[in-house]
Design a protein around this nucleic acid. Sequence first.
DNA 1: CGGTATCCTCGGAGATACTG
DNA 2: CAGTATCTCCGAGGATACCG
Lengths: 124, 124
Amino acid sequence: MRNLVSCCPIEEVMQILSGRWPTLLIYYLQQGTKRFNDLRRDNPTISHKMLAFELRKLEHAGIVLRTEFESYPLRVEYALTPAGKRLVPLIDALGDWWEATDGNAGEQDGNAADIVDFGQSEHV
Amino acid sequence: MRNLVSCCPIEEVMQILSGRWPTLLIYYLQQGTKRFNDLRRDNPTISHKMLAFELRKLEHAGIVLRTEFESYPLRVEYALTPAGKRLVPLIDALGDWWEATDGNAGEQDGNAADIVDFGQSEHV
DNA sequence: CGGTATCCTCGGAGATACTG
DNA sequence: CAGTATCTCCGAGGATACCG
């Protein structure tokens, strides 16, 4: 079933993935296990507070696994869960889709599909 | 080639799809061509202003095609572009992914135990 | 009917400082 | 080092009203 966009689940997914950071964090975590400050370095413009918040959100969604070590200074590692890893190709597909449509801008009838110019996109 | 989450395109896609409405609007438009007030009825809680704004955003992204008729009263129809239609299954896949993980909610907590044993060894 | 402009508010998110 | 709490501020987004 649900071979169409099924309204409710998508709303829930978007609650998690919406915003500037979740997909970026998943991207960086997909590179391997990272610590809190690793992720801050990966993404210098996220605030301390937001990073903590987004990570908890992803953790609760079952996308990110948080592991705390009893060392001192405190040490915490973040990694993608199996579900999180399964999510990666889906996000990736969106990126591919975008690059494809982007590439053929004008395919519609000439008037659409110009580059979208919202905010600032920052490259990594 | 971007067979991993490729950072930049994903950021751009998320600028379009982030938020409560874009995926919902795509869902409703995927049912067929709709007029402005049809979409308001489909989604009673979106404000007039937001609907106009989100539709323009999707139009500029090449996802939605806007067609204006010269009748009176003014009549405008919205439909998915080919690119928009190609996007539907990708969004759908996210919904499926969510339902799958959702079903086993808590699955992750279990394997947190995997890491229970810790390499202690760490200076920073 | 569809779209835009104006006003206003409420909470998202930054900066900072403190705790374990 | 990782996380939380507090204060603050800006702007996303609602309500409303007016045009084509």
